[in-house]
Computed example of a mutant assay.
Amino acid sequence: MSLINNVEFLRHLPKMNAFSGLGALAPAVPTPLVETTEFGVNPGDLKMFSFVPAQLARSPALVVVLHGCGQTAASYDLGAGWSALAAHYGFALLMPEQQAANNGNTCFNWFNPQDIARGQGEAASIRQMIAHLVGTHEIDPRRIYVTGLSAGGAMASVMLTTYPDVFAAGAIIAGLPFGVATDLREALHAMMHGSALSAPELGGLVRNASTHGGAWPKISVWHGSADRTVHPGNA
């Protein structure tokens, strides 16, 4: 499936109204996403939302989509059209959601050491959600992908780093590299100014985050050069 074909497909869907942007969604707006409350251990206290079309493709893929700050799973899905793509192409969709109790701005805690280590916190919760969907819907374990926007992009970096054995590929949209911050102050600095770490230093953080010895997931990085929220140098 090409990017051009995807854009053309979404272009013909009914248009959203002026008040249904990526970051805001009225609670009454219906969503095809279904919440699952029991999916295994949940040390990061995240919510699990998913959409599995009635007609899954043969050897179906799973796409994990992580929202940005101020968003919900449903609002990101509404703005970006992920469930429409899932129904069109026959892949399963997982959209974890942050809770305000964990982060007041509903950002994934991509900078918190307790949430970005393999087997811990939010990273472990997302991994449990993936395992649940793989087992329930016979997902092809070779076709698991992750993407995210902004803080969700940074969390996608975390997942690709801590669980490189799980993912075939990932796409980071306006995100940040793994390991550029270990607390909120450092996170804000990295967002505004980019990382002071060199490429070899960042690579070392990734390699040391797991005992992975196989092939690494393919990664696509998308970042606007005029981004005023997340410094483009983070790309």
Rank of each mutant, 00 (worst) to 15 (best):
residue 2 S to E: 15
residue 2 S to P: 14
residue 2 S to R: 10
residue 5 N to P: 01
residue 5 N to G: 01
residue 10 L to Q: 02
residue 16 M to K: 14
residue 17 N to W: 05
residue 17 N to T: 03
residue 19 F to I: 01
residue 19 F to V: 01
residue 20 S to F: 01
residue 25 L to T: 00
residue 27 P to Y: 12
residue 27 P to S: 12
residue 28 A to Q: 15
residue 28 A to Y: 14
residue 30 P to S: 11
residue 31 T to Q: 01
residue 39 F to Q: 02
residue 40 G to I: 08
residue 41 V to D: 15
residue 41 V to T: 15
residue 43 P to N: 06
residue 43 P to L: 00
residue 46 L to T: 12
residue 50 S to N: 12
residue 50 S to R: 05
residue 56 L to K: 08
residue 60 P to M: 08
residue 64 V to C: 03
residue 67 H to T: 00
residue 69 C to M: 10
residue 70 G to L: 07
residue 77 D to E: 03
residue 78 L to D: 06
residue 80 A to V: 05
residue 82 W to H: 12
residue 82 W to F: 15
residue 82 W to I: 06
residue 93 L to E: 05
residue 97 E to F: 09
residue 98 Q to S: 07
residue 100 A to G: 04
residue 100 A to K: 08
residue 102 N to G: 13
residue 103 N to D: 15
residue 105 N to W: 01
residue 107 C to Q: 03
residue 108 F to Y: 14
residue 110 W to A: 00
residue 112 N to L: 04
residue 112 N to W: 01
residue 117 A to Y: 02
residue 123 A to D: 10
residue 125 S to C: 05
residue 126 I to M: 12
residue 128 Q to E: 11
residue 129 M to Q: 10
residue 140 D to P: 00
residue 140 D to M: 01
residue 141 P to A: 03
residue 141 P to C: 03
residue 141 P to L: 07
residue 141 P to F: 00
residue 142 R to K: 13
residue 142 R to G: 08
residue 143 R to F: 00
residue 144 I to R: 09
residue 145 Y to G: 02
residue 145 Y to K: 04
residue 146 V to R: 01
residue 147 T to M: 09
residue 148 G to W: 02
residue 150 S to A: 14
residue 153 G to Y: 04
residue 154 A to Y: 06
residue 154 A to H: 07
residue 156 A to S: 11
residue 156 A to N: 04
residue 157 S to N: 08
residue 161 T to S: 13
residue 163 Y to E: 12
residue 166 V to M: 15
residue 167 F to I: 13
residue 168 A to L: 13
residue 170 G to I: 09
residue 171 A to D: 08
residue 172 I to T: 00
residue 173 I to Y: 11
residue 175 G to W: 10
residue 175 G to P: 11
residue 176 L to P: 07
residue 179 G to M: 00
residue 185 R to Q: 14
residue 187 A to P: 05
residue 188 L to E: 10
residue 189 H to T: 13
residue 190 A to L: 02
residue 190 A to I: 06
residue 192 M to W: 15
residue 200 P to V: 03
residue 203 G to Q: 11
residue 203 G to E: 10
residue 204 G to W: 06
residue 208 N to Q: 15
residue 210 S to G: 11
residue 210 S to K: 09
residue 211 T to P: 10
residue 211 T to E: 11
residue 213 G to C: 04
residue 214 G to R: 07
residue 214 G to L: 11
residue 220 S to Y: 15
residue 221 V to H: 10
residue 227 D to K: 06
residue 228 R to M: 14
residue 234 N to H: 04
residue 234 N to L: 10
residue 234 N to A: 06
residue 235 A to N: 13
